[in-house]
Design a protein around this nucleic acid. Sequence first.
DNA 1: CTGTATCCCGCAAGATACTG
DNA 2: CAGTATCTTGCGGGATACAG
Lengths: 133, 133
Amino acid sequence: MTSNTVWDAQDAVAPENACPIAPVVEVVFSRWTTPILWVLHQYGPHRFVELQRRIGTITPKVLTERLRQLERDGLIERTYFAEVPPRVVYEISDLGRSLAPLFAALAEWSVNLGEVDQARGIYDAKQQTRHRR
Amino acid sequence: MTSNTVWDAQDAVAPENACPIAPVVEVVFSRWTTPILWVLHQYGPHRFVELQRRIGTITPKVLTERLRQLERDGLIERTYFAEVPPRVVYEISDLGRSLAPLFAALAEWSVNLGEVDQARGIYDAKQQTRHRR
DNA sequence: CTGTATCCCGCAAGATACTG
DNA sequence: CAGTATCTTGCGGGATACAG
């Protein structure tokens, strides 16, 4: 953070500086990267169609896009077998495996999802009465 | 999907089942919710403008939207003071504070961002040579 | 089987201006 | 100060068809 006096003009903190964890979120979490990583981490190597089936509703286009991104970021590894018919296997990399504690923390926090639902109910109820005048 | 033979009973796994942590990600992480929660958690209560300045580049419209969502989900609390001029203070709730271990895990993992960058470099280099034929 | 190629859409987010 | 109101855009994602 540009060091001048104390809280100089141009203070405007860059987003990354305001929040050191944002970059991690950007790399690891998106609608589909989370399920993909989870599956590969939890259930071992998968072929393309296996992933597609296990995740359930993802289209091949999107699955390909996410897999490429994860491969590029070094979180998964793609292995191509030049057989007939050709075969491809995706598995989590060491770097991807290092996300394990993070995933554990995530899974643990999911016990609080009920409270979130409850909070939503209360909030919506308040809004309801507010509009009903 | 809904096939008929061996793969029919509990075939198509719903996304939530394929990945129990996806719902948590959906609630907690988006481009701006992460920085907001981080700031409120790390630096205490903030007023609207203070948040805007600290986060740096967020527009008031988007900031309002994210704050409303976080309030509705019970992760932050909004307090309105009917003074002149009016004052509003946002602070993290108990539920929001329960994210602390999660944030810690996130922050810790950020040491690996360098490896991600490196992986990207290698991947891109490979693609480069592949196109250079 | 393992993807590509198109086309399309919704929604988060940006730009900008204005109000109680 | 603490937001609203509009308008626009970018991008992830869905549907569908097709190829190596």
